[in-house]
Simulated scan of single mutants.
Amino acid sequence: MLFTFVSVLLALCQLISGSALTFQLGAQATECFYIFTTKPNTPVSYYFAVQSGGAFDVDYTIKSPRGEILVKEEKERLGDFVFQADIVGEYEFCFSNGMSTFAEKVVDFEIKFEDTNTNNFKANMPDQPNTKPIAHVENMKRTVDKIDTQLDGLLRTLQYYKTRNNRNQATVKSTESRIYYFSIFEVLLMVGMAFLQITIVQLFFKGSRKQLV
């Protein structure tokens, strides 16, 4: 029983390959990442979210091993999509911050692709001699599938809330900075107006004394 459960988990790990990272995208910069598929017709899912910087948007493109542009989007804040990798080879994911002159961006990025040429878990399950498929093993497979789906949904939800939290913090910091500089400007404006009023009063009295003389 335990051996079967471990085998199912190992099969799950073999079926799914993925990578996740957080990187900093400088102003007027472009960063590219690559994945290599070994089998045709592989669904590739990718997720990205701009955590901070500027208007929280980037441009991105996805190219096939032949150099063809599969996806091209501009000024996107968040993406969670799937496309079909029809041919075997290296696929290119590029993020561009060309629209920003000074603002740097922090981006979360994840790529995941599944091997669909395997016959679900049955192709990777170890054969046990003199045994027949039993109901509880099939139920265990369905349970693992369900857990994997729920964990993936939970991860996406956590990433979404992380993005919202980072953006809200960036908004708060930006608002605090604006209030601070506006307060300084207001104080300087008040001092300048007071100095101008004093100067006008002094000129008024000087003019009055000249007339008296």
Results as ranks from 00 to 15, higher is better:
Met1Trp: 04
Phe3Ile: 14
Val6Phe: 13
Ser7His: 04
Ser7Asp: 08
Ala11Gly: 15
Cys13Ile: 05
Ser17Met: 07
Ser17Arg: 08
Ala20Tyr: 03
Leu21Arg: 14
Phe23Tyr: 15
Gln24Asp: 12
Gly26Arg: 13
Gly26Gln: 12
Gln28Met: 06
Thr30Gly: 01
Ile35Ala: 12
Ile35Asn: 06
Thr37Arg: 06
Ala49Ser: 15
Val50Trp: 03
Val50Arg: 02
Ser52Phe: 04
Gly53Lys: 13
Gly53Ile: 14
Ala55Lys: 15
Phe56Arg: 09
Gly67Asn: 03
Gly67Trp: 01
Glu68Ala: 12
Leu70Phe: 10
Lys72Trp: 06
Arg77Thr: 13
Gly79Gln: 04
Gly79Asn: 04
Asp80His: 07
Asp80Glu: 08
Asp80Val: 07
Phe81His: 08
Phe83Gly: 02
Ala85Leu: 15
Asp86Met: 11
Val88Ala: 14
Gly89Tyr: 10
Phe102Trp: 10
Lys112Gly: 01
Lys112Trp: 02
Glu114Asn: 08
Asp115Ala: 10
Phe121Asp: 06
Lys122Asn: 05
Pro129His: 00
Asn130Glu: 00
Thr131Trp: 00
Pro133Val: 08
Glu138Leu: 04
Glu138Thr: 04
Lys146Tyr: 05
Ile147Gln: 06
Thr149Gly: 03
Gln150Pro: 00
Leu155Gln: 09
Asn165Phe: 09
Asn166Phe: 11
Thr171Met: 11
Val172Cys: 01
Ser174Pro: 00
Glu176Gly: 03
Phe185Gly: 06
Phe185Ile: 08
Glu186Thr: 04
Leu188Ile: 11
Met190Cys: 03
Ile198Trp: 02
Leu203Arg: 11
Lys210Pro: 00
